[in-house]
Design a protein around this nucleic acid. Structure first.
Lengths: 113, 113
DNA sequence: TTGCCATACCTTTCGCCGCTAGGTATACGA
DNA sequence: TCGTATACCTAGCGGCGAAAGGTATGGCAA
């Protein structure tokens, strides 16, 4: 009942992954691409064209705060979760778990519940 | 290595669910909508506007065979998996499991592996 | 010193997939 | 006879990710 509609279907997975990574520590865009790539053993490779727009959108909505730093003569923009971002992460993760559990059920897997 | 690219991101979940349902027994479109709805306890509700086009596409590609039957004065189109459809189901399910496992890893869940 | 690769940021364009919102027709119960 | 459930269908829109490109600096090798 509480769940009004299907979230347009399983979208915003990139957003979920990015938020989750930033929960552990602040990171910059280029770093996120590689972190996700290596964390998933190359199973998920987010192109930069996906990551940067998401970061900008999240910043616009107040889910992320930014800090410009120069390291080794290179300028980086570090992103960190705000309270709002933490809440958003919790929301997305919850929806994600609910949907995957539902699908696992159809696929005939126990889904460890 | 075998996995060339990200499948456009987590698309074709409706297709996966439909194929999986048809693996157990043949069903008709209207029935599929409700079967998925109830199997997922209303967490996933595929509109008919999603289901029918997928069925037509799968039939066009030889993944489903059809049989028209009249029950209680109502005309129904029953769909059944072909060999090709079974293979397609196996493919989609495998991709699905790989991706969800990867995401579960990022989310810090054991994902029962 | 020149050129290439890695780093680090960014945007525009395109295509697809699912969603919305309709539409048709029959059966059945109030 | 009128509404609701059954059962099928389609056209059009929108959003999100993918592809493809563009800028700039640093470092290394030829």
């Amino acid at each position: 009942m509480a769940t009004s509609k299907n979230p347009p279907f399983l979208n915003s997975v990139p957003e979920l992954l990015i938020l989750q990574c930033l929960k552990d520590r602040q990171m910059y865009g280029y770093e996120l691409v590689q972190a996700i790539r290596s964390a998933t053993h190359d199973h998920i490779v987010l192109a930069e064209g996906v990551v940067y727009p998401v970061l900008h959108m999240l910043e616009r909505e107040g889910a992320l705060s930014t800090e410009r730093r120069t390291v080794n003569g290179r300028s980086r923009i570090y992103y960190a979760l705000t309270d709002r971002g933490t809440a958003r992460l919790a929301d997305l993760a919850s929806v994600w778990r609910r949907l995957t559990a539902a699908i696992a059920g159809v696929l005939g897997e126990p889904s460890h519940a």
